[in-house]
Nucleic acid binder design. Structure first.
Lengths: 341, 341
DNA sequence: CCACGTCTTTGAGACGATTCAAAAAAATCT
DNA sequence: AGATTTTTTTGAATCGTCTCAAAGACGTGG
């Protein structure tokens, strides 16, 4: 259609294509008069550089793929935001892809990104050990794992989920809770398993005081799953019912909270809740939720910085596994001290 | 790096590059023996087709840009999901871009998409009348407006926001409310203005019964803005205080709801609330929110279908403006009938 | 007026895949 | 076997941009 090429610009400006290219890429080496003439022609024709041809010639893309488990989880939206801010500064485009935790969708996205010869891929993998990821790396597309630890062949940025789970559980124990529910799943998801392991460790450490962890495994990580788990818990007879719930993420926690209020259980008096991720909704919930905060934007920023570093100096680059510390934010939902132990 | 070209495959399989290309694109015209030999070579070398070169030669991209106002608003996540489902079936990739309602970011994204020569752009524009959009269309990149009505030069899919506002307000009036707050802003956003206009119309129609609309304009559409508006409303003396709030979207409604519970006002007894969008969080709120539902996935599906139609038969294509009807979903937050009018 | 630097501009290859007319090979018919 | 048709394979041209060696323009000093 109306798309003009460098050649037409050259013709109109009465210069060679090489000169137009120079104006575009190294304007300072072109004489001011010519430069102006070329700009004029560009304006007149409405010329827009064809990035595809440029990429083919230069052999280096300007776009980075970001594959996340769930675009509608605000946690990932924030990670993306962080990554994009840095990408912007480097004149790089982010391609946001949603795997929806489906390995098949993930694979399709990776295929497409590889075919596009993107500069690199940031990914929160469904399964970090998937051979597809290793293959991608091996074939020359740099990969940075996000929110998931790599084993040395790649860079990664993650948050210490074990520590997060531990701190959260320790907090609940310290507030007097003894029977603590762990709400989350499937445990095949690394993050969930780690948080669980952390909680488990904290509970074991206090086993002498009678602390114990009760698992409420869920099949998904959304609001609905949390609500279902909450109903299950609410249905238990008082003595067996945990007095606190540690949820593997905030969406679960929000659903869980709703179930409590539907069943007439007071939060935090009857049941305390701690979520994970500290998304904006957590603080804004009916009962503001305690939550384990992760540096979301920073996670995204760091991931792309590692990627860009790897790309710009492939030789001296050493893969790094960055791990951030989570922070427990205590709010209403777990503030009260339980006195009936 | 490790990236092999069609030429290397040809060499290894002892055929010409043309044949390899045929195997890739029209395998049926290649003799089985040769075909197998080529596949073998592809496997051995780990060849991945270079989509960039293909695109350059064929002149037709396989990716579509989707620019939304806020990735972290579940409404848009669902729209994206719908669009992606259809794109998938057509072997097309979706490039999700977040303008964050910032005209500048939006412009940058459009620039990049145009440089990439994408197949087309689906966009929820910050300003539908922006000349940049017309320019994109004029230069040959098809544009479909999403959740925003076009004027004839482009296709568009939208939901009747005026009707939505009207139905929501009528519902509140029918439940006995007379002083109704409209929470939302800025009014420069078309969707907000339309919803307001609809509400306004419904209220005017019942002015004889003493209904009136009180504006609580906000500067943003997030949870925080809703909370702030809620506090403003709660601070009013009882007689002046509206008994119902119609919020321009669910995020505002959630924030508003939280403010009510912080200030000790009961929902729906003291103040009824109706949100807009019916995102999953609405049903999952502490008090399940009434909300005006929009066919989110359908919006996305339809948008990309229009785009693909336009692209596949540019000549006979007539631009269409599709408008869907919203549905009011009544839940706890506005169910009660007010008896004190 | 020539030789010699310094700026500018030029234009012929890439880059990797697709296309298509034409050549080659195989199959079918006399 | 030779002619004819059908099936396969070939390879040069092309898409739009960048790169870089080389040519051209210009100014300066001798």
């Amino acid at each position: 259609m109306g798309t003009r090429s460098i050649k037409e610009v050259a013709q109109l400006a009465r210069v060679s294509v090489g000169t137009v290219s120079n104006v575009l890429n190294r304007p300072e080496i072109v004489s001011p008069a010519t430069r102006e003439r070329v700009f004029e022609a560009i304006r007149e024709l409405g010329f827009v550089r064809n990035e595809v041809a440029r990429h083919l010639r230069v052999g280096r893309s300007r776009t980075v793929g970001l594959v996340v488990l769930d675009v509608s989880n605000p946690f990932f939206a924030d990670v993306a935001q962080g990554a994009e801010a840095v990408a912007d500064e480097h004149d790089t485009m982010m391609m946001l892809c949603n795997s929806a935790a489906d390995p098949d969708r993930e694979r399709r996205h990776l295929d497409q990104l590889e075919q596009q010869r993107v500069l690199g891929v940031l990914i929160t993998p469904v399964d970090a050990a998937s051979p597809r990821l290793a293959q991608l790396t091996a074939r020359g597309t740099p990969v940075v794992l996000v929110d998931s630890a790599a084993t040395g062949m790649q860079c990664s940025v993650a948050v210490d989920d074990r520590l997060g789970g531990q701190v959260a559980a320790a907090h609940l124990i310290e507030r007097g809770h003894r029977r603590i529910a762990f709400v989350g799943g499937p445990l095949s998801i690394k993050q969930v398993a780690d948080r669980h392991a952390g909680a488990s460790a904290a509970v074991s450490a206090s086993a002498g005081e009678g602390a114990e962890l009760v698992d409420f495994e869920t099949t998904a990580l959304g609001v609905a799953a949390g609500r279902a788990a909450g109903e299950r818990l609410a249905a238990l007879p008082g003595a067996e019912r945990p007095t606190a719930a540690l949820c593997a993420n905030d969406l679960l926690a929000l659903g869980f909270l709703q179930a409590m209020s539907l069943r007439g259980l007071k939060v935090p008096d009857d049941v305390a809740i701690v979520g994970y991720d500290d998304i904006d909704f957590a603080a804004a919930a009916a009962v503001p939720l305690s939550s384990v905060r992760q540096p979301r934007e920073l996670l995204g920023r760091t991931a792309i910085e590692l990627l860009l570093e790897e790309v710009s100096s492939p030789d001296e680059h050493r893969h790094r596994q960055v791990i951030f510390q989570p922070d427990l934010v205590v709010r209403e939902s777990s503030k009260a001290i339980r006195r009936d132990a």
